[in-house]
Amino acid sequence: MGRIITPVRVKDVTIGEGAPKIIVSVTGRTPDELRTQVDALSGRPVDIVEWRVDFLAALDDTPAVTDQARTLAARLGGRPLLATCRTSHEGGEATIEDDAYADLVVALAESGVVDLVDVEYRRDERAVERIVAAAHARNVAVVASNHDFDGTPAKEEIVSRLRAMQALGADICKIAVMPRTPADVLTLLDATRIMHESHADRPLITMSMGGLGVISRIAGQVFGSAATFGMVGAASAPGQVDASELRAVLDVLERSR
């Protein structure tokens, strides 16, 4: 059995209770592309929409970014909105200094329309602390994240990173790693189990990327992962599964438990 986890509730979605929640990303570079991607989510089993802000062509125009957040939120039909500016350090599109990164994410947290913000926990410590404080002041949940495209760290290192995110005050702790062998996938899953059973008091999101790691996206709940990323249309990360197929498998696993 795991420790007692304090769930995170955003709108009508509770992360950390029941079956893992499905998060789908939208990555449009223009308002028209984003509108098309959001409209394609209608009727699909999507619990949370992640807006990958780093893809936006107008990324350096903060008022335009927050205006786009309002437009997106209005089209989501009540689904929670997670705003993520993924930087080039962690596989994203944005090349941005720490202060500018913090300014942008704080502005999104303070926009009044974003339900969760992602923060790369290995950015400058002061920038991270500023984002967490600003988000919590507005009752916006913080997803601390780390993405390792170079490989899969040792089990102890994965647990250490997740514990560091928790110590920063993140509401949800997320890590994604790249496997080279099936053993790497097992490493990620067992690290998730250890964190969930021995250290976590809040939800985790963990995944092994690529085709080799797909099992972690569909069976992570067995080991303690509270959400997973699926796709509607094009994938935003390697190894994502169509949201409808993902929901079917997650439901089978949840019933069996």
Rank of each mutant, 00 (worst) to 15 (best):
E129Y: 05
I131E: 07
V132W: 02
V132L: 10
V132S: 01
H136Y: 09
H136G: 13
H136P: 11
A137E: 11
R138W: 04
N139C: 01
A141F: 12
A141E: 08
A144R: 11
A144G: 15
S145P: 07
S145A: 11
N146T: 12
H147E: 07
D150W: 07
G151V: 03
P153S: 11
P153N: 04
A154I: 00
E156Y: 01
R161I: 11
R161F: 10
L162Q: 05
L162S: 00
R163V: 05
R163C: 11
R163L: 07
M165L: 10
A167K: 15
L168D: 11
D171W: 06
I172F: 02
K174F: 03
K174W: 02
I175C: 09
I175D: 11
A176K: 03
M178V: 04
P179N: 06
P179A: 01
P182N: 05
A183D: 12
A183K: 07
D184H: 06
D184Q: 07
V185L: 02
V185C: 05
L186D: 01
L189V: 04
L189R: 08
D190L: 12
A191F: 04
A191D: 02
T192L: 03
T192K: 01
R193W: 14
H196G: 00
H196W: 12
A200V: 03
R202I: 04
L204N: 14
I205T: 08
M207C: 04
S208F: 04
M209V: 13
G210L: 03
G211F: 08
L212G: 13
L212T: 12
V214F: 13
V214R: 15
I215K: 05
R217S: 12
R217I: 12
R217C: 05
I218L: 15
A219W: 03
G220F: 03
G220P: 12
G220M: 13
Q221P: 15
V222T: 15
F223Q: 10
G224L: 11
S225R: 02
T228I: 09
F229E: 12
G230S: 09
A234C: 14
A234F: 09
A235G: 14
A235Y: 07
A235V: 15
